[in-house]
Design a protein around this nucleic acid. Structure first.
Lengths: 217, 217
DNA sequence: TAATTAATTAAACGTTTGATTAATATTTTT
DNA sequence: AAAAATATTAATCAAACGTTTAATTAATTA
């Protein structure tokens, strides 16, 4: 029988034709392309064939490496979410985490991975999201559960006011840090608020200052 | 030839079987169901057949009244967005529009139409949104273009600080007002921040106060 | 080098998709 | 009451979908 159990491909992969355009890891090429297309078009609107074509492989390869389109999405999400999750965990470990610093850290992390908000929002947070069931208890706590703890600590130290409860404060913070990037095209074209380069830094300053005032003791 | 030009159906509609479960307007029944399903599952993930079944009609009826699935979505969006657009226009016409009042007006309008944020976000604001091209210049200005004007007026009257430019302030405001409802399921289940009934009013208070401090002259 | 395993391809599978058709029933108009 | 316009159904279409299969080629192992 031909290859049935898809395993992690070996490092050196020299087949007849170098299927993946770049180095050699077909699996990684599929993941890269899928992440891009899922972020830009959404899971339901992205045919497996398109991913395969863009990755320079056959549709069968995707099922060979991932088994199903849904597993591919899950794999993409787990990989894509890592930078943000790490940023939040680092924040939690850092004792010197002022609201200003938190805002800047989160915003620049998201800015560095433009597709991330779309992926997380569409596939796990919005109702009907394909990964909602699987991620409700697996990913969301790692992303959203740590922030209230951080803010709780700040309140106990009386570095910020205790007015909004930690969870509410976390939701406010998340709103300011994520939403602008979610509606980035509209923000830039309709409102004229740039979120690239210098304009992004200026926007970060404004948001950080706004949050600082909002949390003022 | 059988009916070609779908027109606005007449008021009293008594056919063989009362196709639409409720009163008689089949077109409205389709619109209602489509709005609900599009909001809960997204356009790409909602088959025309499902809409037809849920509305108690034949798939052909949808093409009879709307011509295509895409026109149906456009019609749904134009209808669904009306309450929010009116709220913003009313705000603009009202001279007594403090930040507190703006926040409360927008939030309660959105809370009154739970599916609205999902619809607008998924189909017009997120990249790959089916209605992005058609609505970029047609709907977005009506929704997002008015807020900067309102905030500009407040700044000229020195009722709020002039620190963030009006457009930036508008984006901040929109973030706080929309995002919580977008991630409502996660907000409630993971963070434990309720957005219904009394809990919603409490949340509104916190956000309004936070915004008031952020805009303090 | 022979045998085995892994990677890949081309073709097709059955299903679901949005859309259309032709026929029929119901109103409305004349 | 006849004619015309409108509304609805059941059946069907071609295309696109995710997935599978069988065969083939390359790499690894024995």
């Amino acid at each position: 029988m031909p290859g049935i159990k898809p395993q992690i491909p070996h490092q050196s992969n020299r087949s007849g034709r170098p299927a993946a355009e770049s180095s050699g890891d077909v699996r990684a090429a599929i993941l890269d392309v899928a992440q891009d297309l899922f972020a830009r078009q959404g899971y339901a609107a992205t045919p497996v064939r398109d991913i395969a074509t863009a990755a320079g492989v056959t549709p069968a390869m995707i099922h060979y490496y991932f088994g199903s389109k849904e597993v591919l999405l899950r794999t993409v999400l787990e990989r894509a979410v890592e930078p943000l999750a790490e940023a939040i965990e680092t924040l939690k470990a850092t004792s010197k985490a002022s609201p200003d610093f938190i805002v800047r850290t989160l915003m620049s992390t998201i800015a560095r991975h433009p597709g991330l908000p779309y992926l997380v929002l569409r596939e796990v947070m919005l109702p009907g999201g394909t990964m909602q069931a699987h991620f409700a208890g697996h990913l969301a706590p790692r992303l959203g559960g740590a922030l209230p703890d951080i803010l709780d600590t700040l309140q106990r130290r009386e570095e910020i006011r205790d007015d909004p409860p930690p969870a509410t404060a976390a939701l406010i913070l998340l709103s300011l840090v994520m939403f602008p990037f979610i509606v980035r095209p509209i923000a830039e074209q309709v409102l004229g608020v740039g979120l690239h380069g210098d304009a992004l830094e200026s926007f970060q300053d404004h948001v950080a200052a706004f949050v600082q005032r909002g949390f003022l003791p």
